[in-house]
């Protein structure tokens, strides 16, 4: 009886996941079309994209780059959220739990303080944001290596590293020119249009390759979620797996920060909700979170662009508001 019930439950989850993946794919396509064609006809957008770019350069030079960035950053944050929630065995973990945002903020604030944009122009913020994030990753890696990447020590060190970087950031902000501080803060609040268009072709493979690799770690994540001891019996080396997944997700998160600033809640709320609907099986959860994260960020970007038109809100503010309320509803319903 119990095994039959289990089987029926698994069947239901499988059907659910196929349905959810289909719905997410449809929503994603609709959101992409909406983001590209808001206020214009779809045929006009298609013509300016594929026939003659001269018809409407705004579509090709403004809307397409930010929709692409929203897709890759949102999807990457979604997938990193699943991986980190799984390896840290904490449903409230997200890509920035391990102090990456603190490191990235420090990198960007340092760049503004020393005036790096004079030498590196528009590449200063993305480069320093990525380097800052990687610096915090390296510190946590070195600190937790001896503890065999134990989830609790990783979270603890992540929080401490984040706090230390925050104190440096406050120091830099206290000596920084108010104008530069304002521009830096706006960048950090999340902006999908801040990346130079020329850099996007270089970013796409950097986003895609680690994300594709992570998509194939579903089985290993399923085993790791049983605990380190059981995982070892089932042929998975937990410290090695933690190390690989931690580094992959950190690199992808660092790239996201460097491309668009700090966009919170995408990596927290999307895996959290999808896990409730399609279950904890990581193979489908990883795919669903990629699609869900991309859809959530594209939709948030459209809202940020048009809700107070012509004033544009930082997309990080919209994701935080939408994500915060949704998370609150989920937690209240569950308790």
């Amino acid at each position: 009886m119990s095994s039959e019930a289990n089987k029926a439950h698994k069947e239901r989850l499988k059907k659910n996941s196929i349905l959810v993946l289909t719905i997410l794919l449809v929503l994603l396509i609709i959101s992409i079309l909406f983001s590209l064609s808001y206020g214009k006809s779809i045929t006009h957008v298609m013509k300016s994209l594929f026939v003659d770019s001269g018809i409407d350069p705004v579509v090709r030079k403004v809307r397409l780059p930010r929709t692409l960035m929203a897709f890759f950053v949102g999807g990457s944050l979604g997938i990193c959220g699943v991986v980190l929630q799984s390896i840290l065995r904490n449903p409230l973990a997200e890509p920035y739990t391990l102090g990456l945002s603190g490191g990235a903020t420090f990198g960007v604030a340092l760049s503004a303080t020393i005036g790096l944009e004079r030498y590196l122009s528009l590449y200063a913020n993305p480069l320093m944001g990525f380097m800052g994030a990687m610096a915090s990753v390296m510190i946590i890696y070195l600190l937790t290596r001896k503890k065999f990447f134990h989830p609790n020590s990783m979270i603890l060190f992540g929080i401490v590293v984040s706090l230390v970087f925050s104190s440096f950031v406050f120091f830099l902000f206290s000596i920084l020119d108010p104008d530069k501080m304002q521009i830096t803060l706006m960048w950090l609040m999340g902006d999908l249009s801040s990346l130079d268009i020329k850099l996007i072709p270089a970013y796409i493979p950097m986003f895609l390759i680690p994300a594709i690799i992570m998509l194939f770690f579903g089985r290993e994540l399923d085993i790791l979620s049983l605990g380190s001891e059981k995982a070892q019996y089932l042929g998975v080396n937990p410290p090695r797996m933690y190390r690989i997944l931690f580094l992959l997700s950190s690199i992808v998160t660092g790239l996201c920060v460097s491309a668009s600033g700090i966009i919170g809640f995408v990596g927290l709320i999307v895996p959290h909700i999808l896990r409730n609907i399609i279950g904890a099986g990581h193979s489908s959860l990883l795919f669903a979170s990629y699609l869900g994260g991309a859809f959530f960020l594209i939709a948030s970007d459209v809202i940020s662009r048009y809700i107070l038109y012509p004033v544009e809100l930082p997309v990080g503010v919209v994701t935080a508001m939408l994500g915060g309320f949704t998370l609150l509803i989920v937690i209240v319903r569950r308790t």
Partner: peptide, 16 residues
């Protein structure tokens, strides 16, 4: 006509 804030001007509107 408004084109957004100084920190985040609406490029689309400016071009149009």
């Amino acid at each position: 006509a408004k084109i957004g804030t100084p920190l985040r001007p609406d490029i689309e509107k400016i071009v149009s």
